[in-house]
Amino acid sequence: MILEIPVESYNFSAAGEAASRVKKTLQRLGIDSQLIRRVAIATYEAEMNIVIHSDGGKIILQVDEEEIKVQAIDQGKGIADLELAMKEGYSTAPDEVREMGFGAGMGLPNMKKCADRLEIKSVVNEGTTVVMGFKNQS
């Protein structure tokens, strides 16, 4: 089962819709609600990263019996220093975004906390692909 949801750059009013659709889809599948919560929060963070830091991209949800896989793929400036980006509180978000209450530097650390596996591939000035895997406990 594959679901692909486009995410627009800098569209803050629509931000969160991809995570919400992922959540609803998983509810339809009868996934354990605590697991859904982890996936939803991680997806929300990934979605916000696309909104804040990229020129746009998409969230892809794939589910099979073993794993829930969420990919966040964007085109844009990419991540220059991945190790630094994984640090809690480190953020490259512009001030105007922080003033809205986003970009606190907790996105990637939260995703790492929520997901069972996290892979990040990023090329500067091209874009970033984040892959998160969650084991299905059923």
Binding site: K24, Q27, L29, G30, I31, E65, S138
Partner: peptide
């Protein structure tokens, strides 16, 4: 109430 089926494969 939202799940399509109690069996995951069927739900997928």
């Amino acid at each position: 109430i939202l799940q399509l089926d109690s069996d995951l494969s069927t739900a997928i």
